[in-house]
């Protein structure tokens, strides 16, 4: 009986989540749904980083650079090869996944802070490299979709029709991003629940114990980096599609930091809190701007908010949700 109730409560939560996803853009202004779409980009990148840092214990300060790989793959295909923008997304994911795999190789030798430095170096290097190889990347100017390949931008005319539904471009971007986000989230959930998730966690908790239980450390770490890279690449591609432009300024070290902040605020090693992490990263600067338009005050409020959240929720929103839900889950999963 209680088990049935538990499944029911779970289904209800999922249904409510999907309901919010479908209705939300109609409750806010058209322009605002673009902000929500941007939050979705963070969400996807954060889910990917969480697979790596939260479940495998490998820190990365370079996810912004992996997003750059995805974004530039999309941009190059659209601008140079005249692909339709949305069809580039899978390739962007694959490209960033391959790069993630390659970054994962030094991770076999390095751990903790040293890995942080390696990924950090990657994050710092990418913008400089993007400027250097300007033939492909457009240098400091970047690549502009509208100037070079306007026909490939979905919804440029202002309306998009899918399966007979016509919607605005902003709504289209929202639904595109969050649909991918939800699918990505579900996949991450399946991974974490399954055998691979156990392997990931065993590497996080004790490498030596993992190896002695037959886990292939090299394969696991690089796989986690590659998977995480795919998420970052897809997020980067969506960011490029939303902006209709890529340039090195979008993919600075700050972007890597924001993704990491979102993952920790959302709660490492937990998935439901990550939506909150994404909204936090997306909306905090905007809220800070409301406090004052002066750039200093805005950053000050932003930093203070991060600190206060971490002091109040040291294990992130995920840890908080777990604590709050514990009485309910204990009740549901214990026999009377």
């Amino acid at each position: 009986m209680r088990r049935a109730l538990g499944i029911g409560a779970w289904l209800l939560t999922v249904a409510a989540g999907l309901g919010v996803f479908l209705v939300l853009p109609h409750l806010v202004s058209d322009f605002h749904s673009r902000d929500l779409a941007r939050a979705g980009v963070f969400f996807i990148a954060i889910v990917g980083l969480n697979l790596l840092t939260g479940y495998t214990g490998q820190i990365s300060l370079g996810h912004g650079a992996l997003m750059a790989i995805g974004g530039y793959t999309t941009a190059a295909l659209v601008v140079h090869e005249h692909w339709r923008d949305v069809w580039t997304i899978p390739l962007a994911g694959i490209a960033a996944g391959i790069v993630g795999f390659i970054i994962g190789i030094p991770a076999l030798r390095l751990s903790g802070l040293y890995l942080a430095l390696a990924t950090f170096g990657f994050a710092v290097a990418i913008p400089s490299l993007l400027k250097k190889f300007s033939g492909l990347t457009g240098g400091t100017q970047g690549l502009r979709f509208l100037e070079s390949a306007p026909l490939q931008v979905t919804g440029l005319t202002g309306k998009v029709t899918i399966f007979g539904h016509t919607m605005t471009q902003n709504h289209f971007l929202y639904y595109l991003t969050w649909s991918i986000g939800i699918v990505g989230f579900a996949l991450a959930w399946l991974i974490v629940r399954g055998r691979l998730g156990r392997v990931f966690r065993s590497v996080r908790d004790s490498e030596i114990a993992a190896v002695s239980s037959g886990v292939n450390l090299a394969a696991t770490k690089t796989l986690a980096f590659a998977l995480s890279g795919v998420y970052a690449g897809v997020a980067g591609a969506l960011l490029a599609i939303q902006d209709e432009i890529v340039n090195p300024l979008t993919y600075t070290f700050l972007l890597s930091i924001l993704v990491l902040v979102g993952a920790v605020v959302g709660g490492l090693g937990s998935l439901p809190g990550l939506v909150l992490g994404a909204l936090f990263v997306q909306y905090l600067p905007k809220i800070s701007t409301h406090v004052s338009g002066r750039s200093g005050v805005r950053d000050f409020v932003y930093g203070a908010a991060i600190i206060v959240v971490m002091i109040l929720l040291p294990t992130g929103a995920g840890g908080f949700l777990r604590r709050v839900a514990r009485p309910l889950t204990t009740w549901l999963y214990t026999r009377p």
Binding site: G296, Y302, I311
Partner: peptide, 26 residues
């Protein structure tokens, strides 16, 4: 956050980065 997980403390120092930087611009 003395007893919080290491990554939490790292994020706090990142928050401090924004805070101090913002204060100086302010």
């Amino acid at each position: 956050v003395e007893r919080a997980p290491v990554l939490t403390v790292v994020i706090v120092t990142l928050g401090l980065f924004f805070l101090v930087d913002g204060a100086a611009r302010w």
